[in-house]
Design a protein around this nucleic acid. Structure first.
Lengths: 336, 336
DNA sequence: TTGAAAGCGCTAACAG
DNA sequence: CTGTTAGCGCTTTCAA
């Protein structure tokens, strides 16, 4: 069954296509009577406006591209939800790209901006470097980033205050009586690793303690990496009573290492991670962690990007730094 | 900077737009020399074909819509990955809808098929009833379903063999010496609940045991529901030594209930769930579960739907029933 | 092998 | 308030 088009409706209702279009788009300049007639014919013909015709003519797809490194990670899924809900509320749809951490796939997806398949693009902690992203940033292309701060006048960013995360975790551990606190970072060059370590250091020093490089190691953000990093730290025989891992996956690795080494948590070793993933509440003891406002980050950035796309101000770059919340649980509170 | 269009390229290369289009689409009828010239101009002008123009003219968006009830659930994320990868390989893009279990949102998204925003739509265990879906099924609309079998000539379906899941779980539990096995279903009317219970019953009976209705309860597929169902079963004082929950969330609820009731797993109570979610390997003891080929389901259905969309056979309905694998772990194997 | 011309279905100027 | 008309950028007959 061939779809009917605007001209069919127009003819049957004895009006022009323009009038039908006006009715469809809620123009106030149509008489009640005409409008009713048109609406009725639309019903009779079961007419639906063709999106491609509309998009071509209006030069808008009402679609936002979203590039994520892995849709299966709860962190990303929550951000996507925030984006999606906000976008949908503003009549935008979401085109997803799970890049599987491949730069090439991310780059490929960016071309959807050029060919106007999407009106704007949100990158969630992409693999792409700043300069690769810059090469696409243009007066005419709307790009936003979540989970990383980059310095470009047209690119709004939304990220957490990593320094503050580091400070609060250390502060919490010090309140529990710890003085020698280890830090396991993710990838060495990841902003999240660096920022959290910076906060860790600042807080230690502002408490009059010294930052000891030997108490830090690198764990690549995954369970295995955390496991290995902890074992290295432990073997190094630096005494420490608490470890702060830059994410929860690595904290799980620490749990595994402690089990093998017969170190009891939290009695002999306090552990705090970041992200507050679900599993932290199912292991014994529950893992203290820092909860980031992921949904809010997605929602906020989507809103701001859409705003910007729709011509509002672009006077200065929009940077949004959100705060996280520490959730103290059994892994860092004795008798908790 | 205004994008250049096909006519700009044509003029600069001294050819017609038709020729440029031919080059762009790899038509074999273009001279090598002409082709080179055109390609060169395309480079110079940094020309990218406008997707909307192309889509309108060719009546194809190369986009697949995907409706999921919750993108944050690992089950769904894995299916989406299968769909996305396959679709991308065939040059299709993915438009996502997280319906949050709201029928209304699912229905709204279905309209993207009507207005030709997407070429086809995949529903992943939707809330919509069969008849609601049927009202959209049409020679002209391509819809596929994952996780549920529905009976319609144009709608390919991909789902797991739930009866077999039930039989294999019961068989495994019987091998471990259990004779009185309880079953906690999800929503009473969910095909997954029914199929798994059917398999449970069949296997019991084929082993010469009787199906005891008092040993079954309903847990709504979530942790709390599993917790409550187990407590009801236990309070009912029917003796049983094993419980099969229709998914892992409910198994987690059973763990909670057993902890409170001081029933030790697996010594006094064996537990088996379905889905093999990540948490099953982080609780103590690990939860035995049934792993479904989720990625494969997504990939398979995407492929078949795209095939069907591209005019291949539509002789008979395509039904794909995949098999799952039981993963026996500590919760059902003593000393495991 | 290439070009001319006619739309795909819609919206927006401009007239009336 | 409504109609006429001219495209949005592209592909695809049909002719040459």
């Amino acid at each position: 069954m061939r779809d009917s088009k605007i001209i069919d409706v127009a003819r049957k209702a004895n009006v022009s296509p323009a009038t039908v279009s006006r009715v469809l788009n809620g123009s106030p300049l149509v008489t009640g009577k005409t409008k009713e007639k048109v609406l009725q014919v639309i019903q009779e013909l079961n007419y639906t406006p063709n999106a491609m015709g509309k998009q071509l003519r209006s030069r808008k797809t009402m679609t936002l591209g979203v590039v994520v490194t892995d849709i299966g990670v709860a962190y990303n899924a929550e951000i996507i939800k925030g984006i999606e809900n906000t976008a949908n509320g503003l009549k935008y749809k979401i085109l997803i790209c799970d890049s599987q951490n491949e730069k090439e796939k991310e780059l490929e997806f960016l071309s959807l901006l050029q060919n106007r398949t999407v009106d704007g693009l949100i990158l969630v902690t992409p693999q792409l470097t700043d300069s690769e992203i810059f090469s696409f940033a243009d007066e005419d292309y709307s790009i936003g980033i979540i989970g990383r701060q980059i310095n470009h006048p047209f690119i709004p960013c939304c990220f957490t205050d990593n320094i503050r995360i580091g400070r609060e975790v250390v502060q919490h551990l010090m309140e529990q009586g710890h003085r020698r606190i280890a830090y396991i970072s993710g990838y060495a060059d990841a902003p999240d690793s660096i920022g959290r370590q910076e906060g860790y250091r600042e807080e230690l020093e502002s408490a009059g303690l010294t930052f000891i490089p030997e108490l830090t190691d690198i764990g690549d953000f995954d369970e295995q990496g955390g496991y290995e990093a902890f074992k290295r730290l432990w073997a190094d025989n630096q005494k420490f009573t608490a470890v702060f891992t830059a994410n929860d996956e690595m904290a799980l690795g620490v749990y595994k290492a402690c089990a093998e080494l017969r170190i009891s948590i939290p009695e002999s070793m306090a552990v705090v991670g970041v992200d507050n993933i679900r599993i932290t509440n199912y292991v014994e003891p529950k893992i203290s962690s820092v909860e980031q406002p992921l949904y809010a980050m997605g929602a906020l950035l989507a809103e701001k990007l859409i705003d910007q796309m729709n011509g509002s101000v672009r006077a200065e770059q929009q940077l949004f730094m959100l705060h996280s919340t520490i959730m103290a649980k059994g892994s860092s509170v004795k008798g908790g």
